[in-house]
Structure formats: structure tokens, C-alpha cells
């Protein structure tokens, strides 16, 4: 049901994009109001969310340690999985963010199979990693639409991306990967009943939305052949806050644009915020040095305690009988010793 709803919403967006381009008012909304509004929501929303997290204190020092601690000088610590220094934390976070270290941890017992086999959980790692890197590459490539002249590094990226030089126009590897990875992640959500069990509307919606963006983009490049020049002119004008008349734009491009804008506006309200959140996770971004350096809790408050004096008073007779030394005599005066 959740999946169905989210497909319907994405399809409705596509139709709105396609249809909206046919009337002038629709075009204006789609090319002016929507992109700027989406951008504003994205920027304000994203930073507001991150700032709100950052505003909340980290009262306790709770890293999850995944390797040997640094304690005795002659025992080799695990510097990345159980960092004790800032550099260690930096390396751990880098491994987490760039390589998805924790997802990679799913190892299988070797005795189960004689050969090295990629388990389903390694596929999750591979799928997720492939998706994120491909998406990053695609976004960087898109910068060429907003910058004139196109910087050399973007050209370089594109050459790298079309390394295999197949097809005309040449096929970008990242396009293939992003589609395959999205398809896998979606398939996994459907196929694995346990994952399906916990999947919400938002989980499917994010996937279908991304899939919509990717598919419309691929259609424009390889099949419908949108006039890239007019798109670039439009993009440059948007970036310069002097939008030009959008009447020459292809409806498919408008659908793509609307999907992208939806994604941007939806982003701050969704689980996609893990992009910002991962940097702030206190089980990952703290060094395991809580015995070496005191972590301060800004809202630490005094609590009701059962003090030694109360305890001694309560058990005075028993303490005396047992011959355990006391602080105060029977009259309650501190003993001098």
C-alpha cells in the first residue's frame, strides 16, 4: 500500500510536469516559483535541521567502540575503529561517510562456505555505496549547466564517466550505476519481507522520487534528446536570478525539474537528512577517551543521594558490631584521628 501510494504521488508529479509546460501560467510556476521555492525550502530546511541537532547538547560520551582501546602502551590499539585521537575520529568518520564502513562489517563465518561469497548484506553495502557515489558524480556533472565556461575538471569527470565510450551519445557509467543501484535498493525493500515490514511510505517515496529523477534524466539524454543549449541557458539565467522565457523548454525537462524540486523541498523533512545527520552521530564522532579527558554535560544537575553520613547513621550499630571504622561517634561528632 505504502509503495503504491508513493508511486502514484511520483506519477502525479511527472504528469503535472508534463502537462504544466503546455500552458503559459503552468510554465511560469514550474520554471520560476517552484525552483526558487524549492531551493529556499531546501537551504533553510536543511540548515535549520542541522542547526537544531547541533543545538542539542551531547550530555554523555557514548562512542560505540569497534576495536581494541588505547590503554596499555604495549597493546596495539585499533586507531580507526576505536579512535582515541582527533585524527582517529577523522579517519573513522571518513571511512563511515566515504566507504560506509559499518555497513561493510557484515562478515559471514568462513566455515559456512568454502569460497568467498558476497552475502546479501554485502550487496546492501555495494548497492548503497554505488548509489551514493554515482549520485554525487551526476550532481557534479550537472554543474556544467550552471557554469560558463565549463571548468576543466568537469570535463575531466565526464571523460572519466564515459570511459567505455559506448553509444552515441556516450553512455555515462554513473547513469547506469545509479539506475541499477536504485533498482536494487527498491527490489530489496520489496523482496525481503523483514525490510518490507518496517518500510514506510516515506521509504518508498524517496526511492521512487529518485528513480523518477534518474529515469527522466536518462530519457532526456539518450532517447528524447532535449535541446541541451536551451536548458543551459535556462539554468544559467536561473542561477543569475534573471530567468528567461521558458517557452522553448521540453515538457520532459519540466517534469525532471519538478521532480528535482520536489526532492529538494522534501529533503529537509525526510530521512534523507541522514546526509547531514551522519556527521553528528555521537556514537561515531567522539574519540574513545572518556577516561583520559572529562566530557562535560552542560545540563548536569545535582541529584538526591544517600550520603555516607546518612548511611553510617542508619547502620551505626551494625557497623560498630562488625568493627568497621566509623566517622562520627554516637553523639554524632566527627571523630578526630
Amino acid at each position: 500500500m505504502n509503495a503504491l501510494y508513493s508511486v502514484l504521488v511520483v506519477l502525479a508529479l511527472v504528469l503535472a510536469g508534463l502537462a504544466g509546460g503546455r500552458v503559459e501560467a503552468g510554465r511560469a510556476v514550474l520554471t520560476l516559483a517552484v525552483p526558487y521555492a524549492a531551493l529556499a525550502i531546501f537551504l533553510v530546511g536543511f540548515f535549520a535541521r542541522v542547526l537544531r541537532w547541533a543545538w542539542v547538547p551531547v550530555p554523555f560520551h557514548i562512542p560505540t567502540t569497534c576495536g581494541q582501546q588505547k590503554a596499555l602502551a604495549w597493546i596495539k590499539p585499533s586507531k580507526v575503529d576505536n579512535p582515541s585521537s582527533r585524527w582517529g575520529v577523522f579517519a573513522r568518520m571518513a571511512a563511515e561517510i566515504l566507504l560506509f564502513r559499518s555497513l561493510f562489517r557484515n562478515n559471514r563465518a568462513r566455515m559456512a562456505e568454502k569460497r568467498l561469497i558476497l552475502g546479501e548484506s554485502k550487496y546492501l553495502w555495494l548497492g548503497a555505496l554505488a548509489f551514493h557515489w554515482a549520485l554525487l558524480l551526476i550532481q557534479l556533472r550537472h554543474l556544467r549547466l550552471f557554469i560558463e565556461p565549463v571548468p576543466a575538471w568537469i570535463d575531466g569527470l565526464e571523460r572519466l564517466d564515459s570511459f567505455f565510450q559506448v553509444g552515441a551519445p556516450q553512455i555515462y557509467l554513473s547513469d547506469v550505476i545509479v539506475l541499477a543501484a536504485l533498482a536494487y535498493l527498491l527490489y530489496r525493500r520489496f523482496r525481503d519481507p523483514a525490510v518490507r515490514f518496517i518500510s514506510l511510505f516515506t521509504d518508498y517515496f524517496a526511492l521512487f522520487l529518485l528513480l523518477g529523477v534518474a529515469v527522466s534524466g536518462v530519457l532526456m539524454r539518450y532517447f528524447v534528446r532535449v535541446d541541451i543549449l536551451s536548458v543551459k541557458q535556462f539554468a544559467l539565467s536561473l542561477a543569475a536570478f534573471h530567468p528567461i522565457d521558458p517557452s522553448t523548454l521540453n515538457p520532459l525537462f519540466l517534469a525532471h525539474l519538478l521532480l528535482v524540486c520536489t526532492l529538494a523541498a522534501y529533503f529537509p523533512f525526510s530521512k534523507l537528512m541522514h546526509m547531514g545527520g551522519v556527521f553528528l552521530s555521537p556514537t561515531r564522532n567522539l574519540a574513545n577517551d572518556s577516561r583520559r579527558r572529562r566530557h562535560v554535560n552542560p545540563w548536569n544537575y545535582p541529584v538526591k543521594k544517600h550520603t555516607y553520613a546518612e548511611w553510617e547513621e542508619e547502620f551505626r550499630d551494625k557497623l560498630k558490631a562488625a568493627g568497621i571504622p566509623l566517622e562520627a561517634d554516637d553523639a554524632g561528632n566527627a571523630r578526630t584521628n
Partner: peptide, 21 residues
Amino acid sequence: LAKYRSFRLFMDICVRCGACA
């Protein structure tokens, strides 16, 4: 939610990938 970043963050960023299952 105002006192523990862990709590607030963990409420927000789970993507339900199922790696923990």
C-alpha cells in the same frame, strides 16, 4: 529531545535499511 542529541538524531535519521535486523 532537547537534552540528548543522540535521541533527537536517532529519531530523525534512520533510513530503515535493515542492516541491524
